[in-house]
Nucleic acid binder design. Structure first.
Lengths: 114, 114
DNA sequence: GTCAAAGTTTGACCATGGTCGTACTTCTGT
DNA sequence: ACAGAAGTACGACCATGGTCAAACTTTGAC
């Protein structure tokens, strides 16, 4: 029996702004979002570049999922993650783009001249 | 001597995204931003519609000012507040607009049909 | 000069949330 | 069937930050 290993995925439109901001404020969670948006394919939980333990990572993935930011599904024993880009943008237009842009601007342009 | 009652106003471009999000995550602080963006003129600290004590409000205003979101100056014994719209938008394009839009969507459209 | 108004500062309290270790579950390969 | 891999769940710990009360400062008005 597949059981209900597939966790619930709320509609981003039903999520209050407060919850979304609380999800995006944690640096490790933003790192997850950044890596998802930079990578073309979905990523397994264990394949992210994070410096935290597995149990902490699980916590972060759940917060992101419940905030409508990521989708999770099983591929064998791995739990895959993908960004819910369109659905989230539809509920919070411009928000993810603004956060990602600021995030990349801080960590991104190595060696840029003013 | 006017003394240094005028607190420091950092350049929004020097503020990390983390600090901005921490400023925007508090509902009372978002209420301040919303009221500033909805009102044409500047607003004194005591003239906001808030349900917190003065000392707590002072704390929130400081957080917003240090995050580059508001400008403060004295008018007599009142401390006036204004939104640093352009400067902030220049540093974090689209962020304030996205947050304000989501904020107003939740509390705003009274009586709207689907 | 005195008094009230408007904010600030300080200190304390407390709830929230990120963190980890440990134990547990579920699936895959052999 | 068994072992290992990949995550999850639970509990505990602890730092951070919002909150208030009380005392203080500064300004404007009379």
């Amino acid at each position: 029996m597949p059981a209900d290993r597939i966790p619930p995925h709320p509609d981003p439109r039903d999520i209050p702004l407060q919850q979304v901001l609380e999800a995006l404020i944690e640096p490790a969670r933003r790192a997850i979002i950044e890596q998802l948006s930079a990578h073309p394919a979905d990523i397994a939980c264990g394949a992210f570049d994070l410096t935290i333990t597995k149990s902490t990572a699980t916590h972060h993935f759940r917060v992101l999922r419940e905030a409508g930011l990521i989708r999770q599904y099983y591929a064998g024993t791995s739990r895959m993650n993908s960004l819910r880009r369109e659905e989230f943008d539809d509920a919070f237009p411009g928000l993810l783009e603004a956060v990602l842009r600021a995030s990349l601007r801080e960590a991104g342009p190595r060696g840029m001249r003013s």
